[in-house]
């Protein structure tokens, strides 16, 4: 049974971005059990990963946008979760990316985040966007820089502590 409208899908040269679905639970469970999730609220128990998946789906219903599950077009492998994130109390609407084990170093986060940002600036009409990056997460900082985002300081979040804010170029500069 489906209760939510079909979520918009995006396609890039190598990737497909589609809405999160119940079948994505094993991928999230594995990601949140790994050290790769340390900068993004992990590690989480299987129960915590399930709640996160439910929250990801609900984010779409509450905001009209959210994070997509990113798959390789060629193989169908799930490579990460990338998209637009803005829960209550978030500093500003964010372009966010998590890459799963084994798919780093291919430029996938940059490629998917670029498509997500285009959707935010285009279909959703966002006037600006940030990305939040933990100071120690150098790989993620490089993705932000490749996207042309510029570090503008730190904010404090009750769950994530002090976290760096990268400001993306304005919509006009991304056209």
């Amino acid at each position: 049974m489906t209760f939510l409208p079909v979520l918009p899908a995006l396609t890039t040269a190598r990737l497909t971005l589609r809405g999160p679905e119940p079948r994505d639970y094993p991928a999230l469970r594995a990601f949140y059990a790994s050290d790769r999730s340390n900068f993004v609220g992990g590690p989480k128990s299987p129960e915590g990963a399930w709640r996160q998946l439910a929250t990801e789906i609900g984010h779409w219903a509450l905001r009209g946008y959210g994070r997509w599950i990113v798959t390789e077009r060629e193989t169908g492998h799930t490579v990460g979760m990338v998209g637009l994130w803005n829960p209550e109390g978030w500093p500003e609407p964010e372009v966010a990316w998590d890459l799963f084990e084994g798919f780093e170093g291919k430029g996938y986060a940059t490629e998917a985040a670029h498509a997500a940002r285009d959707h935010a600036y285009g279909a959703l009409g966002w006037p600006t966007a940030i990305s939040l990056v933990n100071r120690a997460n150098t790989a993620s900082a490089r993705v932000a820089e490749r996207l042309g985002a510029v570090y503008e300081g730190e904010v404090t979040h009750e769950t994530y502590g002090s976290i760096g804010v990268y400001r993306h170029p304005a919509p006009e500069a991304c056209r």
Binding site: L4, R51, T55, G58, H59, L62, P87, E88, E158
Partner: peptide, 15 residues
């Protein structure tokens, strides 16, 4: 923040 994340999860639970 936790409250909003739970509310979103309540909706995801339906799906």
């Amino acid at each position: 923040y936790e409250s909003w994340m739970l509310y979103a999860a309540e909706i995801g639970h339906w799906q």
